[in-house]
């Protein structure tokens, strides 16, 4: 069934929190908290909590990066030192550990950072502009609650959202 969207804008985080609590306890058929998205100018952990667990997996990719990056890097560096025309420099061993450790350390950081950034973009679904409803004021000072719902339960949801002094409630056609 085709879903429809509604976006309510609040200026007070407490009102938004109350709206979310009401939505949670409303028991509307076909409605799940996973369909609710908060859009806000800053992070509101106290509001996100109300949405239930939304886990973050970035750290595991970071771990992968910091494990794979330096090991492959060290092997590449050491084999590059060995494979090029056999060069002795300054009497040091051809594959010396201290310099290789320095470079491995840098690769450790670099791969960690790159993996973090890449996985973050994947997790945040960026780049992309897939969200159906957006209002510029959520980047200024308003908190938006976006609900994806069946057209049938839309009036009920709008009623709940309207209970807590929203500045505006917008539907799909508002675009």
């Amino acid at each position: 069934m085709k879903k429809t969207h509604t976006l309510a804008l609040y200026s007070d985080p407490d009102e938004a929190a109350n709206a979310l609590k009401d939505l949670k306890s409303s028991g509307i058929s076909g409605f799940r908290m996973d369909d609710v998205i908060i859009k806000s100018p800053i992070d509101h952990p106290e509001l996100s909590e109300l949405l239930g667990p939304r886990p973050v997996y970035i750290q595991w990719f970071t771990l992968l990066g910091v494990l794979l990056g330096p090991t492959t890097g060290l092997v590449l560096i050491a084999s590059a030192q060995a494979s090029f025309i056999y060069q002795v420099r300054g009497g040091r061993p051809v594959v010396p550990f201290p310099p290789d450790m320095v470079l491995t350390y840098e690769l450790f950081i670099l791969s960690g950072v790159l993996m973090t950034v890449l996985s973050t973009f994947v997790a945040m679904k960026l780049p992309g502009n897939r969200s159906p409803l957006y209002n510029a004021s959520v980047s200024e000072d308003k908190i938006g609650i976006l609900v994806k719902t069946d057209p049938a339960s839309l009036p009920q949801i709008n009623e709940i959202l309207g209970r807590h002094k929203p500045l505006e409630i917008m539907g799909d056609n508002a675009r």
Binding site: A80, Q81, A82, G91, P93, V94, V95
Partner: peptide
């Protein structure tokens, strides 16, 4: 391959000079 070269000549690569 470079990796096998690395393993084969390991002690040579780890020698300090002059000796």
């Amino acid at each position: 391959m470079s990796l096998s070269n690395l393993i084969k000549n390991w002690s040579n690569f780890r020698t300090r000079r002059p000796y």
